[in-house]
C-alpha cells in the first residue's frame, strides 16, 4: 500500500484525494464504477492536479457490515488494477481489432463476398477501359518473358 494514501473520516463519509498525474480521470471513473453498488461516490477537485473523492455508506439493510475504510483501501487497489488494465488495453488495442475483423470476416462472409463479387463484375464489365493496363493477363507476360 502506498504511504501517501490517507483519508479523512467524518461520520458516514470518507474523503481522500487522488493524484491525476498518476491516475487519469478515466482510470478513476472505471474504479469508481465497481463500487457504485456499495457506496455513494462523489468527485470534485481539479482534474489537472488532483481529484477529491467523497464516499458515503449506502443506508440499506444489506450494507450494515460495510466498512468504509476497507472500501477506500479496496478502491485504491482498484485504481492500480485499472492502471494495469489500461496498459494491457492500450498495448493490445490494434491486435484485438485485427483479430476480430479477421475472425468476423471469416464468420460472416456474405456481405464481403457480395462486395467482392460486385467489384469483380464491375471489373469484367469495364475491362476494356483499362488505362492502367491491369487487365492484361500476367500469364501472357510470363510467356513473352
Amino acid at each position: 500500500m502506498s504511504k501517501d494514501f490517507n483519508f479523512q473520516v467524518d461520520g458516514d463519509k470518507l474523503e481522500f484525494t487522488i493524484n491525476t498525474k498518476i491516475y487519469s480521470l478515466e482510470t478513476i471513473y472505471q474504479a469508481a464504477y465497481l463500487f457504485l453498488d456499495k457506496v455513494y461516490i462523489f468527485l470534485d477537485g481539479d482534474p489537472s492536479k488532483e481529484i477529491i473523492v467523497v464516499m458515503k455508506i449506502k443506508d440499506s439493510p444489506d450494507n450494515n457490515s460495510v466498512d468504509l475504510e476497507k472500501i477506500a483501501d479496496e478502491f485504491h487497489n482498484e485504481l492500480l488494477n485499472q492502471l494495469l488494465r489500461a496498459k494491457v488495453n492500450k498495448s493490445n488495442a490494434k491486435i484485438r481489432e485485427y483479430i476480430v475483423a479477421q475472425a468476423l470476416y471469416n464468420a460472416v462472409p456474405n456481405e464481403v463476398d457480395e462486395l467482392l463479387e460486385e467489384v469483380e463484375e464491375t471489373k469484367a464489365e469495364n475491362w476494356q477501359d483499362d488505362p492502367m493496363n491491369i487487365a492484361k493477363p500476367w500469364e501472357g507476360d510470363k510467356e513473352s518473358n
Partner: peptide, 18 residues
Amino acid sequence: SHKPYAKIMLDLQTIEKF
C-alpha cells in the same frame, strides 16, 4: 487515519514495467 486492510501486490513500478 489509515488501516492497511487490503494487502496489495500490484505496485506502480510493476505496472510501469508491464
